[in-house]
């Protein structure tokens, strides 16, 4: 996907200029626009990125904000239930010995902010508003119990580390840049292994340790064409899909035999 910052900036600027009537309660309002709402997975898909533009609107009643504005964009992919396993050495070889199930955790999280999330407010405030990777709840099942655990839990730490290595969890303390004091931009990386589904995009406008405006939108990651067809067939029609693969193998074998026949 090509990024067209110039056009998008113009578009975002247009959004900011045409000030609609805002509610009396909030002095500021957020307006955001994503460069694409549908990421199509085609046969040459190796990952892409979506650019989010946002404007902080002012209805004229804005109180002065001595603390300035901070913005956090959090993108959360479809939830999934996964098993994390830990290897340990048994009789000299590495064997999966311990496992934990993570229930309904986001398959993808990207946190893009203009400064490190931990600087944006009190720990309790950050946790309540899920600001920063560390403040996301990762519900585990340990035996018969459910719940999140202490931040230092080895499984939780490993889960975050593995997901970050895969590029599926992403935190960039400078991933959001202010183009003008009221206009910002963030690039959301979508890796090749991103699962399909709806990615919720949440933008929070913060000032002085509180949320003063929020805005939500979404990006769909979908397979198209053959990719969609194959994935659906494999999932819903396993027998026919298997049969089709088997015939493909037979056909390739027969074709090769005739093409390379030497006698």
């Amino acid at each position: 996907m090509k990024r067209r910052p110039a056009i998008a900036v113009a578009f975002a600027a247009a959004l900011a200029a045409g000030t609609p009537a805002s509610s009396a309660l909030a002095a500021e309002r957020l307006v955001t626009s994503v460069s694409t709402h549908r990421v199509l997975i085609t046969s040459n898909f190796t990952g892409t990125s979506a650019v989010l533009f946002g404007a902080i609107e002012d209805d004229g009643t804005t109180v002065p904000r001595p603390a300035g504005y901070d913005v956090v964009v959090t993108v959360r992919g479809p939830t999934e239930t996964v098993v994390a396993r830990r290897k340990s050495r048994v009789l000299g070889i590495w064997v999966n010995t311990e496992s934990r199930q993570f229930i309904d955790v986001p398959s993808y999280i990207a946190v893009l902010s203009n400064r490190p999330p931990q600087e944006l407010g009190a720990p309790e405030f950050l946790r309540r508003n899920r600001i920063g990777l560390a403040n996301h709840t990762l519900r585990q099942r340990i035996g018969g119990d459910f719940g999140d655990v202490v931040p230092q839990d080895p499984f939780r730490v490993a889960f975050l580390r593995v997901k970050m290595d895969q590029g599926l969890f992403h935190e960039e303390p400078t991933g959001l840049t202010f183009i003008t004091p009221r206009l910002f931009r963030a690039t959301v990386p979508i890796p090749g292994i991103a699962p399909t589904g709806t990615y919720e995009v949440e933008t929070l406008l913060l000032s002085g340790g509180e949320v003063i405006a929020r805005e939500a939108t979404a990006i769909e990651v979908v397979k198209t064409g053959f990719e969609e067809l194959f994935a659906r067939a494999a999932r819903d029609h396993g027998f026919l899909y298997g049969l089709a693969t088997a015939f493909l193998a037979l056909g390739t074998g027969i074709l090769a035999n005739f093409l390379f026949r030497r006698e």
């Binding site: 239930t81 396993r85 070889i93 593995v162």
Partner: peptide, 18 residues
């Protein structure tokens, strides 16, 4: 591969049925 210490001791796999 079975004997040497792996770089990452943890693996994450889809598993809704465990």
């Amino acid at each position: 591969d079975l004997v040497i210490t792996p770089q990452e001791l943890f693996t994450i796999v889809p598993g809704g049925r465990l």
